[in-house]
Design a protein around this nucleic acid. Structure first.
Length: 691
RNA sequence: GCCCUCGUAGCUCAAUGGAUAGAGCGCUUGGCUUCGAACCAAGAGGUUGGGGGUUCGAUCCCCUCCGAGGGUACCA
């Protein structure tokens, strides 16, 4: 234990002396401080010495001054005896705080049905699961809530794509259907964005590819000769394209007379792009033109990707967005056939999610579904309109929050609470759900584990409820966390680079299995299966938790596959080693607890002291982690503890040492094992006894 | 424009007002006949983005500038 009070005392003493001596007269405040500052530095060590001299040992094992600090040491053996006694007695409860009569609901994991569960969802679930354990350890009563996005535009898009292009193609294996549905959604997204992608690409070419601009005139003349000569309508379209590209302006597809102009233009664009690579020409730089953001090779790659669907998609895609909107109306009318389809496919995704949550150790007391809060949400909108908190602006109900609060600077802005066609938004549903949490579930505090991009949104929701006079809005907290990225950039279904959870898990489990095969080939088969799973999932979880909430995580599969260093397996390994030592000794925890009245480590080694201090820190760290909603505190704790344990067993032989040290060290090992298991448990990570 | 977050060793990250700013990865060197080497030891590596302020004391709090990312009315 160290104390830094000397600095403050020295400062007071120096200032008092200076004043008494009249040395401060005529000096500005700043000069006085500087003078005092220079004297304080020299004074502190002497003062510390003085205090130590006066204090003597004062009942402590030792009291000494160092660098102006007073270091107080307890009798290590007595402290160790008490600490280890507490750990062994409380067992899995060690570290927990006394109960508090407060019910906290933690909403996390919110995946959307009809979409893939990916590495971004993984961070959310890991955070939610761990926070739930930590809050329980800190004494709160906790309810875990899930909130499934089972309706909304994404569902409609997916079902539209399924019904029009893939009906009857679903895999026979029921457990593969959720994932397959996710792929259908991705295709729906690609189809619905296809026109925009094509036109954006042409705009990109016309802004940064000098050769393309130079060739555009020639290309369009060729197009004219090939198919359009004598057709005035095509001629107009060609003139339009020429004008837009030459001036680097966006092309508007609705202004084209003939929808097949783009598909006919497309192969010529491809030839031109290929030609630009084969015969690069240096064109004079254009004044003020921005540096190209893409290489010719990248441009060809994009062209090829779009080319695969050009003939099939371009013309029909004209009406797709309207088709999707029409389908949304089927939902609004609760069209029986549509509802049947929705229920069936929804269940495919839910089956997938239940399996994944089971793998992740996420259990929920309550499952909320977006589809269930649409009606209560609409009711709240009506109420808000009646009470004139909301108003209709640009054809849809919104709440102008700043205006209602009388704020002059823009802070909460305006939130739409219903679409102009009467269909619900995320906000419609969250208003209802928030009220339900407090009123129907009687919680005292509600926490939302949702990514940071929705920070403003949640402030808006909570403020609107406050405007309604809903007092408990003050007990609603959004816990924001940063995104998961990939080494090559953001995760984006548009780019098709979404790492799906199942794939990552398979890779990591396989790697864990490989290492066990290598290190521990004689392990029984069932153990190999279980342990490789525990290590793999633990490793993934630790990577998600050992980073502060407000820091981006760059997910690198190669790193995830490495189990060395600052990882869960390092900590799990320390735990397994501790278990093995106890197993060799053939003693039970009860034996060791009973031996504590004769506890004697002899001369306590620095590694032992350091380990004891780490074990003792758990209750404080639990408090801090809960107060700050930061599992990172516990992730740091277990790593630090494992590290100190490694130091300990390399420096201090346990089984070979003489009594009474042997038994005392065994008790220390048992306490370490317990603290490691408890810490890992708070993170939702398994503590295998063998690896 | 306005608001939020981040900037620490080559890379990925800790440390939130106190002692000489710590780990991991990577690099160099050493340690398995020993309670399990998924480990340990040693070495190299820092003007904590720049500047100012508050404080006895600042990576941490405040101001400002630079750089990166995100949000900002009918996506969720």
């Amino acid at each position: 234990m160290a104390s830094s009070v000397c600095f403050g005392l020295a400062n007071d003493a120096v200032m008092a002396e200076l004043e008494r001596g009249g040395k401060l007269e005529g000096l500005s405040k700043k000069e006085a401080k500087q003078l005092a500052g220079s004297l304080v530095k020299d004074r502190v060590p002497a003062l510390a010495e003085q205090i130590v001299g006066r204090l003597g040992n004062a009942g402590f094992a030792s009291v000494e001054a160092a660098n102006g600090y007073i270091n107080i040491a307890f009798d290590s053996n007595r402290m160790a005896e008490r600490l280890i006694g507490e750990v062994l007695e409380r067992g899995p409860e060690y570290g927990n705080a006394p109960g508090i009569d407060e019910l906290v609901m933690i909403e996390h994991s919110q995946p959307n049905t009809h979409k893939a569960f990916h590495v971004g969802h993984l961070r959310n679930s890991c955070l939610g699961v761990s926070l739930s354990h930590i809050m329980k350890a800190a004494g709160y009563r906790v309810q875990d809530a899930n909130y499934i996005g089972d309706i909304g535009m994404h569902v409609i898009k997916c079902l539209w794509c399924y019904q029009n292009f893939h009906q009857g193609e679903e895999p026979a294996d029921p457990i593969a259907r959720g994932r397959w549905l996710g792929e259908i959604y991705a295709e729906a997204d690609a189809r619905l964005n296809y026109r925009k992608d094509v036109l954006d690409f042409l705009l990109l070419l016309s802004t940064e590819d000098q050769q393309f601009i130079a060739a555009i005139d020639r290309m369009l003349k060729y197009l004219w000769r090939e198919g359009g000569a004598g057709d005035d309508v095509v001629g107009e379209d060609i003139a339009y394209l020429l004008g837009r590209v030459a001036n680097a302006q966006p092309i508007k597809d609705e202004l084209l007379y003939r929808q097949d102009v783009i598909p006919r233009f497309w192969p010529i664009v491809g030839e031109q792009l290929a030609d630009a690579i084969d015969h690069p020409r240096i064109l004079p730089p254009v004044e003020g033109a921005p540096e190209p953001t893409t290489t010719p090779e990248e441009r060809v790659a994009v062209w090829r990707k779009l080319e695969t669907h050009m003939q099939e998609w371009w013309v029909p895609s004209m009406t797709w967005r309207d088709d999707v909107k029409a389908m949304f109306q089927l939902w609004e009318e609760r069209d029986p056939d549509f509802v049947n389809l929705w229920e069936e496919t929804r269940e495919w995704s839910l089956a997938d999610f239940r399996r994944i949550f089971d793998e992740l150790g996420a259990s929920f007391d309550i499952w909320f579904f977006e589809s269930q809060v649409e009606e209560p949400g609409k009711q709240i909108v009506r109420e808000l309109l009646e009470r004139e908190i909301a108003e209709v602006s640009d054809g849809l109900p919104v709440v102008k929050i700043d205006e209602k609060l009388g704020l002059k600077t823009e802070t909460y802005r305006t939130l739409p609470i219903l679409r102009s066609d009467g269909t619900t938004l995320y906000s419609t549903k969250d208003l209802a759900l928030t009220r339900q949490k407090f009123e129907e579930h009687g919680v005292d505090r509600a926490i939302w584990v949702v990514d940071v991009r929705q920070a403003l949104y949640f402030q808006q929701i909570f403020k609107i409820l406050e405007l309604m006079g809903f007092e408990q809005a003050g007990d609603a907290y959004h816990l924001p966390y940063e995104m998961v990225r990939l080494p090559e950039g953001v995760i984006s279904s548009r780019k098709g680079n979404v790492p799906v959870y199942d794939d990552i898990r398979d890779a990591v489990v396989a790697r864990a299995r490989e290492i066990i095969e290598e290190k521990n080939p004689e392990m029984p088969l069932a153990d190999k299966e279980r342990v490789s799973w525990e290590v793999a999932i633990g490793s993934l979880k630790y990577a998600m938790l050992a980073r502060d909430n407000n820091k981006m995580i760059t997910f690198d599969l190669d790193e995830a596959l490495s189990f060395d260093g600052h990882t869960a397996p390092y900590i799990q390994y320390a735990h397994a080693r501790a278990c093995r030592i106890l197993e060799h000794a053939g003693v039970t925890v009860e034996d060791l607890a009973g031996s504590l009245d004769r506890f004697d480590l002899g001369a306590v080694a620095s590694e032992e002291l350091s380990l004891l201090q780490a074990i003792a820190a758990l209750p404080d760290d639990v408090r801090q982690a809960a107060a700050e909603y930061r599992p990172l505190v516990i992730a740091n704790y277990v790593f630090d503890l494992a590290k100190r344990f490694n130091d300990f067993y390399h420096a201090c032989p346990v089984l070979q040492s003489e009594e009474p040290v042997r038994t005392a060290r065994l008790a220390l090992v048992a306490a370490t094992r317990q603290a490691l298991a408890n810490g890992l448990g708070l993170l939702g990570i398994a503590a295998p006894t063998v690896m």
